[in-house]
């Protein structure tokens, strides 16, 4: 176990290193000149040259990357080109909002997905089952900006139940969380359905029935916990879905998280911020996968770590 954990940590670090290198290459190859952009239109050639030197943009590629990497190891993500602030600070100040949104998304995807999956499994091969599964496909096939705008129109504009955007109270959280969680709800309902169908076939369920337990006791005391665990273990993997989703969801709802930060930075070609958010997202994804793999054998001892 210890050896496995160590090897996985090492692997994860290598993946992150690779991602930092790839992102750096991508951003380095862009045909935009950050120095000229920072200096503004009226700047002289000399000013632009000074800025270039100051930022190290005149160095060869590998030296620039090395410089960035040494900074990174000291916890320094660099400085924003346009906002004149530390990228680390910017991301740090917006991280709570994003984490809150993700927590809301996890709650809503589990609530919707597990309920749908449970009902579908119990009403297996009926019209209810089919329509729930088609619905889960609709969830998986809907772009988040469409869901977001649709929810905004119905619940904020027409019904006035929720604010139209922004951040602060619980009511601000509901629609963005639903929007971000709906995609996952689609996957979870399908997983929950097949996990539940598998469990209900097992011998211990028959035993529980045979010894005279009530239907709901069998369902919630015996079947649910066993079906639920492998499904819950997937949460770590959702981080990847969320990290893609936040850019769109946060921009639709004006949610002040790192997704919005990234989108604003992309529009202004503020490379250090794009780089920083990409690395933080990749870190979260790698961490999520790692945790999911660690939890799996704890939940199901038949799974062996290799």
């Amino acid at each position: 176990m210890g050896g496995y954990v160590l090897r996985r940590i090492l692997q994860s670090l290598l993946i992150l290193l690779g991602i930092s290198f790839l992102t750096f290459i991508l951003l380095y190859l862009i045909p935009a000149d950050p120095a000229r952009q920072i200096a503004g239109r009226s700047a002289t050639a000399q000013t632009v040259e000074n800025i270039r030197e100051q930022l190290g943009l005149n160095l060869p590629f590998y030296q620039q990357y090395f410089r960035y990497l040494t900074g990174l190891l000291q916890g320094d993500l660099g400085r924003s080109y346009l906002q004149k602030t530390e990228v680390g600070e910017l991301i740090w100040s917006r991280l709570p909002a994003t984490l809150l949104l993700m927590a809301g998304a996890i709650v809503s995807e589990l609530a919707i997905g597990l309920t749908m999956g449970l009902v579908a499994a119990l009403r297996r091969n009926t019209a209810t089952d089919t329509s729930l599964m088609v619905l889960s496909f609709v969830g998986v096939s809907s772009p988040q900006f469409v869901i977001g705008i649709l929810l905004l129109y119905v619940f904020s504009v027409q019904l006035g139940w929720f604010p139209i955007g922004g951040y602060g109270t619980f009511r601000h959280m509901v629609l963005p969380s639903l929007t971000l969680g709906l995609l996952g709800a689609g996957w979870y309902s399908r997983m929950m359905r097949s996990a539940m169908i598998d469990v209900l076939r097992q011998d211990f369920i028959r035993t529980a029935r045979a010894k005279g337990l009530k239907r709901w006791q069998v369902l919630f005391g015996h079947a649910m916990p066993n079906a639920l665990l492998p499904v819950i273990a997937m949460i770590g993997i959702d981080i990847g879905l969320f990290m893609s989703g936040i850019v769109v969801v946060e921009s639709v709802f004006g949610w002040p998280g790192i997704g919005q930060l990234a989108w604003q930075a992309i529009q202004r070609v503020d490379i250090p911020i794009i780089m920083g958010v990409t690395l933080v997202s990749a870190f979260a994804i790698v961490l999520g996968n790692f945790l999911a793999d660690l939890i799996a054998p704890l939940i199901d001892p038949r799974i062996k770590l290799r």
């Binding site: 993946i15 992150l16 991602i19 790839l22 991508l26 951003l27 862009i30 045909p31 935009a32 990847g240 990290m243 893609s244 989703g245 850019v247 769109v248 990234a262 989108w263 992309i266 529009q267 070609v269 794009i274 958010v277 990409t278 997202s281 990749a282 994804i285 790698v286 996968n289």
Partner: peptide, 15 residues
């Protein structure tokens, strides 16, 4: 797989 896919696509498309 560990790359935030949409972020990557958006960055590339924007640049």
């Amino acid at each position: 797989m560990a790359f935030p896919a949409l972020l990557l696509a958006i960055t590339l498309a924007a640049l």
